[in-house]
């Protein structure tokens, strides 16, 4: 896979899976816009890592749940790169709680970042990709968006929504040479999953046929595939990268 001359935006790329995706795409030749919401210092570290391997990158602040903020980000990327070949909608948050205890703002915050954010960023890049008659959009969903998960009504609803959004966007944009696919990661070791309690981790491990948690790189590798020409006959799909947890 070779992304020489290609440009990518990776949302939520200051850490975890997003960081690994940004590094992977850059290592294969892409210029990368490293989006972050609050972690400026960590985003700059990712940019430095990319520059250290001789590739082009810059950090761009944006709250993906805010349309003005997204518009400004797309504008900045267009000014710096002149085109957008790849969008990876990765930014996400969790605010877990049992449904009975979940507050309205916990619901809204997670839906706004994890689902509305995908809509806004996708809408934002579509104009450019339509003109180019090519583009790759990769949405990071979650395996719990397929299976459900107690304590995560907001997160599961958003991640499930991303799968539906992926299918619809894929159908709307297929005639313009743009493919849209989703990845449903299982249990991947990141800051976000480190917050889960030991009981839950233990319980999840039992459900994984490959009997271990995944690494961010396992997701980044599949993103690279979906962003490449090798996946050109795939669109609207959700790939489970979960050690066989949900089949």
């Amino acid at each position: 896979m070779n992304f020489a001359g290609k440009t990518a935006i990776v949302t939520g790329a200051s850490r975890g899976i997003g960081k690994e995706i940004a590094l992977k795409l850059a290592s294969l030749g892409a210029s990368v816009a490293v989006n972050y919401a609050g972690s400026e210092a960590r985003a700059n570290e990712v940019v430095d890592e990319i520059k250290a391997i001789g590739m082009d990158a810059f950090a761009v602040q944006c709250d993906v749940s805010n349309s003005d903020s997204v518009t400004a980000m797309i504008k900045e990327v267009m000014e710096k790169f002149g085109k957008i070949d790849i969008l990876v909608n990765n930014a996400g948050i969790t605010k877990d709680n049992l449904l009975m205890r979940m507050k309205e703002d916990e619901w809204d915050d997670v839906i706004n970042t994890n689902l509305k954010g995908v809509f806004l960023c996708t809408k934002g890049v579509t104009r450019q990709m339509m003109k180019q008659r090519s583009g790759r959009i990769i949405n990071i969903s979650s395996i719990v968006g397929v299976s459900g998960n107690p304590g995560q009504a907001n997160y599961v609803a958003a991640k499930s929504g991303v799968i539906g959004l992926t299918k619809t966007t894929a159908k709307e944009l297929a005639s313009r040479g743009i493919t849209v696919n989703a990845i449903a990661p299982g249990f991947i070791t990141t800051d976000m999953t480190d917050q889960l309690n030991d009981d839950l981790r233990e319980q999840m491990l039992k459900q994984i046929p490959l009997a271990k948690f995944g690494e961010p790189e396992d997701i980044a590798n599949v993103v690279a595939f979906l962003a490449s020409d090798e996946s050109k006959y795939m669109t609207g799909q959700t790939l489970h990268v979960d050690g066989g947890m949900v089949m």
């Binding site: 104009r127 339509m130 003109k131 005639s175 313009r176």
Partner: peptide
């Protein structure tokens, strides 16, 4: 519909 969106663009 998409053609019309593109025309407007």
């Amino acid at each position: 519909s998409l053609d019309v969106v593109e025309l407007v663009m």
